[in-house]
Design a protein around this nucleic acid. Structure first.
Lengths: 345, 345
DNA sequence: TTGTAGGCGTTATCAT
DNA sequence: ATGATAACGCCTACAA
């Protein structure tokens, strides 16, 4: 806070800067007497070391960069919260960036981060191939990168996420168990994980000998305008409900789609779960407030955050040649939380 | 990214560091020829100036600190999103901190931020009196502070928020209009804005000559454990419904309370709005997915973010003595969005 | 047009 | 136990 510097203290105390530095850093070389005096003076004058100078000297910033596509979901908010908690706990700060699901913004954010000086980067990439060269350059130079959430990405480093195939497999299975076999799958467009989540859906249907209707797999690109998503969903649902083989269940592969679809169904007065059962990815805390209480695939955000951060700090503090490290991909377990939207009683 | 420094370039090009520096900063002193050569070399080697060194020299970091009590609500997420957008747009990065509605964490966060070197701080304080001395010290030294959202705080600086009294007045009025006059008000505990929001509630009742029942004003402290909030709400609602003058409406003065209460009502099979109408603060994007579609008091997050940031940057870049500035408190308009939860057809 | 020197606030190394 | 010096990487008078 205060403007006083180490040098200034030295002058006022008739000591040298190095003595002050050592005293404040509790060096064994300095007498208790002097330490006391220095500390007392520093405190009284509210001395705060200049972090830039310190980090310049030390060659690190104690900042890590966190780059998320979008912070508008409960999933992201939780991730952020726990990342923050872990970071602080390890005496790191984080600089938050958003790519808004957009390669150009992602690139800009990455440049800003490196430019700004971060000791490492945690990223959920926009797509499977976005900014590959850049990210690889960054990673292979000074600044280790750990990938989380959207782990299907071609970079040789630690990755922390969930088993997307298995998660949707289990969710789909829940629908099949209640005999809802005509299932619409709503997917985000071009998100790295989409294909894998769909794979689980397909596999489950196959395993239960249910024919896959390609027209039941629907991509919705809501990244640009969240406002139009409701209209889009509405049109599609109406069309399907009017077909001669109307669906009786919906699987949402992203939180946004899963939660939004409920509003559209309510608006269309389509009864859930009576006419259509709904299950999908969502970490929303108040699933019970939804119409109706929503069955969800829930991701372990706290574990994901702490694991990703731990791996990143390992890389930052590791002296070893980056190519010597065998990188791991950690898949955390999701949990299925059944609520009214899939309960037929 | 790359490890190359200005000095290194100088050596390799057989020029002096200052020449390189000037060339890269497009100084008029340097010949075009040299500039071209230097730029080309720098680009090829992916030269990035060390931000710490630069900022040490320049005396600023280009970082601003953002301190929020909690990022788990739509309101905060939106605020964050727009703050980020504005910050980036002004070539500032932001370092995010959370106080988790807790004075101790707030203090720690503030110390970290100043310690880390930020050019200014944007804060929504934990309470009306939390960390007053510290914040005032920070503000009066190098690091200007702007307060937003929770603007009822004793610090002489710019503040940006909403008119809390008026907002709840209008919301309460909506309930009165549909003849729901026995209104429970759910309030967060010790949040700076609570009293003002309650004031609007009280005023509206008075203006319509409705007696105020003190037992209808209920404080819920959910800051420590969000998990128990549902149980808490449940008990209270049951008790009130069983009284001899059961309420017929609920006003939520925080987003969390407003959204959570719907789940509890659904669980208790209390019909909304038939038995109880609900309105309250919430910036949730998918209000239509709630049970039922929720009438909300909506805050202009984008405007709040951009205004607060603008004022902060003004302070950062202002050369004037801090005491010369006449600080403003800006109150933005909220909007009431009526949906099913208050519609009696 | 280019180069030299000093300094930003620290810390580390090496004297004294 | 304390101090002098150099260095981190960059910028900027000022000198050449």
């Amino acid at each position: 806070m205060a403007k006083i510097t180490l040098k200034e203290i030295a002058k006022r105390l008739h000591l040298s800067p190095s003595t002050i530095s050592k005293a404040l850093n509790d060096s064994y070389e300095i007498s208790e007497e002097t330490k006391r005096k220095v500390r007392e003076f520093a405190q009284r004058h509210n001395y705060q070391p200049n972090p830039l100078a310190k980090y310049l000297k030390l060659g690190k910033t104690n900042n890590i960069g966190v780059l998320l596509p979008n912070i508008q979901t409960s999933f992201s908010a939780q991730l952020l919260r726990y990342l923050h908690k872990s970071a602080i706990h390890n005496s790191y700060n984080f600089i938050l960036m958003q790519s808004i699901d957009n390669e150009k913004d992602e690139e800009r954010a990455l440049l800003t981060l490196t430019n700004q000086g971060v000791d490492g980067i945690l990223i959920a990439p926009v797509s499977e191939t976005s900014n590959q060269q850049l990210l690889s350059d960054i990673h292979n130079n000074n600044c280790p990168v750990v990938i989380f959430d959207r782990i299907h990405y071609n970079l040789d480093t630690h990755k922390v996420g969930i088993d997307n195939v298995r998660s949707t497999y289990l969710a789909t299975e829940e629908l099949i168990k209640i005999n809802r076999k005509n299932i619409i799958a709503f997917c985000g467009k071009n998100i790295g994980v989409t294909q894998y989540r769909l794979e689980g859906y397909r596999k489950a249907l196959e395993d239960y000998n249910i024919p896959i209707k390609e027209e039941n797999i629907i991509y919705i690109d809501y990244r640009k305008s969240l406002t139009k998503i409701d209209e889009g969903l509405k049109k599609i649902i109406i069309r399907h409900m009017r077909s001669n083989d109307p669906p009786n269940a919906i699987l949402g592969t992203t939180e946004t789609l899963t939660t939004r679809v409920l509003g559209v169904l309510a608006d269309l007065k389509i009864q859930v779960p009576k006419e259509i059962a709904v299950i999908g990815f969502s970490n929303i805390e108040f699933a019970n407030s939804l119409n109706p209480a929503l069955s969800t695939v829930h991701q372990p955000t706290e574990e994901m955050a702490s694991t990703a951060l731990r791996l990143l700090l390992d890389l930052i503090n590791s002296k070893r040649d980056r190519s010597q490290i065998d990188f791991q991909t950690i898949l955390l377990e999701t949990s299925i939380q059944l609520r009214k939207s899939t309960m037929l009683t």
